[in-house]
């Protein structure tokens, strides 16, 4: 199944090193000292990112697990990733990586 929208696929989607994710969905960033709380889907995605899964892989894995429209899933994962970025939980992309 192909997505009908063409999205910018975020290049670097690596979780910062040392980020701790607890069973109950708590996240601790030792680098900043900040804590976060996740819902179940959020925890799923964060764990997949920690395991270095690529965007397409994450989509496929999540499609297998959840009853969800692909476009809705893609949109919400992209949005989620931008939130992770703004919280400083992802590794910085190398500047002008061309």
């Amino acid at each position: 199944m192909q997505s009908t929208y063409i999205y910018f696929i975020p290049g670097a989607m690596k979780l910062q090193k040392n980020i701790a994710i607890s069973e109950s969905g708590f996240v601790f960033n030792p680098g900043s000292g900040e804590s976060f709380i996740l819902n179940r889907t959020g925890k799923n995605i964060l764990e997949l990112l920690r395991d270095n899964k690529m965007f397409e892989e994450i989509i496929e894995l999540m499609m297998g697990e959840y009853e969800v429209d692909r476009i809705v899933l893609e949109k919400s994962i992209l949005d989620f990733i931008s939130v992770l970025k703004s919280y400083g939980l992802l590794e910085k992309e190398p500047a002008s990586a061309n």
Binding site: F26, V27, E34, S35, F36, I37, L38, N39, R40, T41, G42, N44, I45, L46, M62, G64, E65, Y66, E67, V68, V72, L73, S76, I77, F80, V83, L84, Y87, L89
Partner: peptide, 15 residues
């Protein structure tokens, strides 16, 4: 059966 999907959410816990 597949689970129902909920939008992923992460909220900062304010100290």
């Amino acid at each position: 059966r597949k689970s129902t999907f909920e939008r992923p959410v992460i909220n900062r816990v304010n100290a």
